[in-house]
């Protein structure tokens, strides 16, 4: 089995993701754990690029590295009085967590093996989407043209009532509710007038 360049990059990235994810759960300094989490996110972005999903890679960087990780760092600084807290990260029940994690992995792998169960093929479980044939990479001159076409398709699918308009509006409602709820929880009682 010979390795081409993209497979090599994938292997290195996968290694980085696994190792940094391990450090996230074992690092004794909480801020260091957050930084390892950022490394994991960056590795995910590289995986998206390898899958010809450049837009998702950028979303991963903007939302997860640019926003979520900063939120996490803030949360650490707000909840712990001292940032050099070096207590152990695991508790007595860690092996239950490991069992659940392995179970989820096995379940996900099994589902990927099921023919057409969750794929967007002809027998799609997602209603409406089967009517629009997905563009195939072979139809385009190169990967860049394919990426551009799929991005426009995504925009059309998001705004078309037959496809994902209702989920989009629901996402909007979810975000608004999340904002309202989190503000109510996060604010101090004495700040309220």
């Amino acid at each position: 089995m010979s390795l081409d360049a993209s497979q090599f990059v994938f292997l290195v990235t996968a290694l980085v993701i696994v190792v940094s994810a391990l450090f996230v759960v074992t690092a004794r300094n909480l801020v260091h754990a957050a930084l390892w989490l950022i490394a994991t996110f960056a590795g995910m972005a590289v995986i998206f690029v390898l899958l010809n999903a450049g837009f998702l890679a950028l979303v991963q960087v903007v939302v997860y590295i640019g926003a979520i990780s900063i939120l996490i760092i803030f949360a650490i600084m707000l909840t712990r009085r001292v940032m050099q807290d070096t207590g152990p990260q695991t508790n007595a029940n860690w092996y239950w967590g490991a069992v659940v994690a392995v179970g989820v992995l096995v379940a996900a792998l099994t589902m990927l093996q099921l023919p057409n169960a969750l794929t967007l093929g002809a027998s799609s479980l997602v209603p409406g989407f089967s009517s629009a044939p997905l563009p195939q990479p072979a139809e385009f001159a190169d990967a860049a043209a394919f990426n551009t076409a799929t991005l426009a398709n995504l925009g059309l699918a998001l705004s078309s009532p037959d496809h994902y308009l209702l989920p989009l509006l629901l996402v909007g409602a979810l975000l608004a509710v999340a904002m309202v709820g989190s503000i109510n929880i996060a604010r101090d009682d004495k700040e309220r007038e």
């Binding site: 950022i38 450049g54 837009f55 950028l58 979303v59 960087v61 903007v62 590295i65 640019g66 926003a67 990780s69 900063i70 860049a144 990426n147 551009t148 991005l151």
Partner: peptide, 19 residues
């Protein structure tokens, strides 16, 4: 390079600067 998602690209690398 002429990235097809260039307009979002510089936002995302800009957020690295914040970090």
């Amino acid at each position: 390079t002429d990235l097809n998602v260039g307009a979002l690209y510089f936002v995302s690398v800009g957020s690295l600067g914040t970090l």
